[in-house]
Design a protein around this nucleic acid. Structure first.
Lengths: 198, 198
DNA sequence: CAATTCATTTGATATTTATCTAATTAGATG
DNA sequence: CATCTAATTAGATAAATATCAAATGAATTG
């Protein structure tokens, strides 16, 4: 029993997107019977050739179809093996689990930090949630686990990095990086934090 | 060896559309582990609750998830059996072939209309669902989008074309061409209508 | 090389849809 | 009954995308 091949989360999404269109499903249906030219498909489906070209290029991206040239016509055919590959890989339980928490590459985070920081000072708070998240992680690292802070202390620490300490404090709390209980603030362990935004 | 169940072309498309979104794939991933509330998913994914509700309703339409209520919270869980059903049904070779059959040509509809109409008057309501659908589409066109009608108005309009306004009214509603809410009737956009019967 | 044919690319447009905020519903609780 | 909380619905907006016509590309043929 060989292990079935895994596919990336990216490819899984691409696969479903490729098949989530009636025209493309019908193109696949037509190609199930035999290979066909763009023109032929366009005529059968009552759509224009550029439209079919467009759909085929999407199916080609995931290698579900391939083409061979013959003169000026291009014959497209369905790759059954690829379809089988998806059938077995896409529904593996692990495959969905992989999607649970996407993780941006660390160097991307480094870039975001570099962009919004001037030394230890925040030049601006990013509007994009994902970028703001990076900033907040960096900010949360200024606090110590297990230590209890009061509001003034929290504000003082944040103010070293940016004026708007109220906003940043709220953000850290709503992201569950920090907990407030009766005026007392505490850094939470990373395991408690909300998932990373997309 | 029992034959695997077939699914309609419509459902095939709905299935792929349901899974063709990163957020929904991630929701499925989260539900793979255990049942979860809307709030919980929203926090984990950094999206608002209405957004999650929306996604869940789409997954619910194809019965991939179901929910149970407990107080004001709703616990959603993944239906593995449905996932398995799709896995086996969606990729059956026949399933794609079914899609190849082109939609019935419009002139077929024109013929049906011609057969059951005498001017603006319906001579008879067809029993065959598919033909009745054509008639209902024609009838629905007598109403305007965005306009609110009361029952008397709806009846009056239908009566111009056929006596049995109660039946035709119910049919339009059950086919979701029209909505009734507290005595008020409204034409629905075509995107809301039930799929064409086969 | 000019003309022809099939395909792709480009750019525009209309539809769909993912997401948000605000409003509403419905259960629970004091 | 008033209040609170979780969820849904409604409405608005922005992004994605399916389609087309026009322009361009590329192989073929007279």
């Amino acid at each position: 029993m060989s292990t079935l091949p895994d596919i990336s989360a990216e490819l899984t999404l691409q696969f479903f997107k490729a098949l989530a269109d009636e025209s493309r499903l019908r193109i696949i249906a037509l190609l199930t019977e035999r290979e066909r030219s763009v023109q032929e498909i366009a005529q059968r489906m009552k759509l224009r050739e550029p439209t079919i070209s467009h759909h085929l290029s999407i199916l080609k991206q995931i290698e579900l179809v391939s083409s061979r040239a013959d003169g000026t016509t291009r014959w497209y055919r369905l790759n059954d093996d690829v379809l089988r590959k998806f059938k077995s890989a896409v529904f593996k339980p692990d495959n969905f689990l992989r999607l649970a928490v996407p993780r941006p590459p660390l160097d991307w985070e480094a870039k975001v930090l570099a962009h919004y920081l001037e030394g230890e000072r925040l030049t601006k708070i990013p509007d994009a949630r994902r970028k703001r998240w990076v900033i907040l992680k960096w900010l949360a690292a200024k606090f110590e686990l297990g230590v209890q802070y009061n509001e003034a202390q929290v504000n003082a620490i944040i103010k070293r990095h940016h004026e708007d300490c109220a906003f940043l404090r709220r953000e850290m709390i709503s992201d569950r990086m920090m907990a407030r209980a009766g005026g007392i603030y505490q850094l939470l362990p990373k395991s408690e934090w909300s998932a990373e935004p997309r």
